[in-house]
């Protein structure tokens, strides 16, 4: 494994490929008796956007939720195999889940702002992690997070109003800002645009493209166009198996696998 990583690092430096941020090896996931993922090997490259695609129920969300151990909240869910963040096993019993989730943030399918003020929504993460020393510093984090999420202009005059009073698209960008505020290294997004109209979607996509500079992003999407637009690499799932993974250009133009081709061209799914 160590040698693997070493080779990988060497390779990436040689070919100018980004290094691996998160690595999944032989990931099996069970919901009770039912197996939802079968030996998935998938690497998430640093500072890129990776898209997970595949028909409904194929295990995209399940894999995504393994990456920040959100599956821990489901009693019957069992994860086997190996998942690492910067080479560290995140399912090691000694790992600090709070730290992991701070480093691997998440944006959910349905916008889920806290039923608190817009300001509180953003400030909550930095506050519990003690990231800021003063109110002024916190204000600054709130502003910069909202700016990065391209929503500052819309909410700067109503920071004390409830976050739940925003429109769906604004709420989703608020949730992205909330994730950014903790300065994570990886952001996981589970169909972040499924509740949004085309204009809001375009904004969020633009945002994802900008965020790539600072963050590693994994996004689940049902929209092939979206995957093509925002991602550098794409992974195709089917019935709990990873079918194929590769650079997005290649996946959309010349996939190795027939299933991928059929799915991308809309023949099933």
């Amino acid at each position: 494994m160590l040698t693997d990583t070493a080779i990988e690092t060497k390779l990436s430096s040689m070919t100018n490929q980004p290094s691996i941020k998160m690595r999944g090896e032989k990931v099996d996931v069970f919901y009770g008796e039912k197996q939802a993922l079968f030996g998935v090997d998938l690497n998430v490259p640093e500072q890129q956007v990776m898209a997970l695609i595949g028909p409904s129920g194929c295990g995209k969300s399940t894999f995504l939720r393994c990456l920040n151990r959100m599956n821990d909240t489901i009693d019957i869910c069992k994860v086997l195999g190996n998942i690492t963040l910067d080479g560290e096993d995140i399912y090691d019993p000694k790992i600090d889940v709070v730290e992991l989730r701070a480093r691997v943030g998440m944006v959910f399918q349905k916008p889920n702002p806290f039923p608190k003020s817009i300001y509180e929504n953003i400030a909550y993460g930095p506050r519990i992690h003690g990231l800021t020393k003063s109110k002024a510093e916190l204000d600054e984090v709130v502003e910069s997070s909202l700016r990065k999420a391209a929503i500052w202009e819309e909410v700067k005059d109503r920071l004390q109003e409830p976050g739940t009073g925003l429109s769906g698209g604004q709420q989703q960008r608020l949730c992205i800002a909330r994730a950014i505020a903790v300065s994570p290294e990886v952001i996981l997004m589970d169909e972040p645009c499924s509740a949004l109209d085309p204009i809001a979607t375009a904004k969020v996509e633009e945002l994802i493209d900008e965020l790539r500079v600072n963050f590693t992003i994994v996004i689940v999407t049902h929209s092939m166009q979206q995957a093509a637009r925002v991602s550098q690499r794409t992974a195709m799932f089917h019935l709990g198996n990873l079918v194929e993974e590769g650079p997005t250009d290649k996946m959309f133009t010349n996939p190795d696998n027939k299933l991928t081709q059929d799915y991308i061209t809309g023949r099933f799914g």
């Binding site: 920040n68 959100m70 909240t73 709070v98 730290e99 992991l100 989730r101 701070a102 943030g105 998440m106 944006v107 959910f108 349905k110 889920n112 702002p113 806290f114 039923p115 909550y124 993460g125 519990i128 992690h129 949730c175 909330r178 994730a179 505020a181 903790v182």
Partner: peptide, 15 residues
């Protein structure tokens, strides 16, 4: 309380 709120809190690293 919807689980989405719980997940939101856990998602930003709340214990």
């Amino acid at each position: 309380v919807p689980s989405s709120i719980k997940e939101a809190a856990l998602g930003v690293g709340a214990s």
